[in-house]
Design a protein around this nucleic acid. Structure first.
Lengths: 187, 187
DNA sequence: CAGCATACGGAGGTAGGCTCCGTTTCGACA
DNA sequence: TGTCGAAACGGAGCCTACCTCCGTATGCTG
């Protein structure tokens, strides 16, 4: 993470931004497993420079997605005030699924970090889990979601949906999310 | 695939079986990305021998899982005669999720082959898709599943659930599947 | 402008994937 | 039972990507 307390040297700042730009493009095109050596090369820096700025692939992903993570958490907090607790939950899940489809492989990368507290992505995941849990409980209290659904099961389900959505042709996740919330059985 | 029309040489047969045994163990322990060189080494053969028997990782996976794929397709065909079309679908989906959790990473590997007709796993996936579609349509005709659910959406959803289930602690997928079929919203 | 701390970068080592071709083995036939 | 040819073997070699380390370069402060 950029230490805002101490300004970066100009060359370090320039290389950092170049790496971010090229990483964004590479992950968009080839997914989260894009070659770090290719990214460094495209940015015109050495692999050692990439590793100094981003010690792991996940650090790079977290740096790219911090704004989106923060936005998602803020969206979630705002939605806690929504009068319709059920609609609020659906809105947040839609935003979550949209976010995880930013790059192919992102859902798996996020899921992998849930068990590893040392990663920078872990903190982001924990934060999102907290927001999701609060929204779920609120929807349950409002009677919009079944009371017997645990936060764990809920997060597993939407992770699965998010993963599946990465693999479909570009289209709205609306139908998929409708299936998730309304279920498959005829009412 | 083993050419049953022409019997294998004894040494080829022996090495084939050894590779299958070691691959099964390696994939069970480390998932579908286990090192092929490790598998060949554990089998006591050269890497070239592994590649001659199984030109790709997916060929090896398909060889290991053919029996389970065939069993799943047979189960699906049998279930087409089940009086309860809804229960039949649930039973088949349970079996599918159990099968895809044979090895970590299997759901992603299967999903990846859907777009590549040249792979041996593709044929297996197409076959399963056909069975699943038949079971779904039957359940829809019986009024057990919503008529507006396409086979595509259905398969995407259960793939997502299968992927998510790979990442949870060993337990029955029953609660997760209940959520999928009954939905999250309170009835 | 000098000096020191910071940043750089790529060689080198590792691991795993994959091919190719010299060597070995199996099995059919005489 | 021995020979011979086709089938099978196997590992060196090349490639890619990861990652570290240390000699070199640069920025910025005094």
């Amino acid at each position: 993470m950029v230490d805002t307390a101490k300004p970066m040297r100009a060359d370090a700042r320039r290389n950092y931004e170049r790496l971010m730009d090229q990483a964004r493009a590479a992950f968009a095109e080839r997914g989260t497993e894009a070659s770090l050596e290719d990214i460094a090369g495209a940015a015109g820096v050495g692999i050692g420079t990439l590793y100094r700025h981003f010690p792991t692939r996940q650090d790079l992903l977290e740096a790219l997605l911090r704004e989106q993570f923060d936005a998602l958490a803020a969206t979630g907090r705002d939605l806690l005030d929504d009068v319709s607790a059920g609609a609020a939950l659906v809105t947040w899940v839609s935003a979550f699924v949209a976010m995880t489809s930013t790059y192919r492989g992102l859902t798996a990368a996020l899921t992998a970090t849930l068990r590893d507290e040392s990663t920078t992505l872990h903190a982001a995941c924990v934060s999102m889990r907290a927001v999701a849990t609060a929204l779920l409980e609120r929807a349950q209290q409002a009677g919009a979601v079944r009371a017997d659904v645990s936060a764990s099961d809920f997060l597993i389900l939407i992770s699965g949906v998010a993963w599946a959505y990465e693999h479909v042709v570009e289209e709205s996740p609306r139908r998929l999310l409708d299936l998730v919330f309304e279920g498959l059985v005829e009412r």
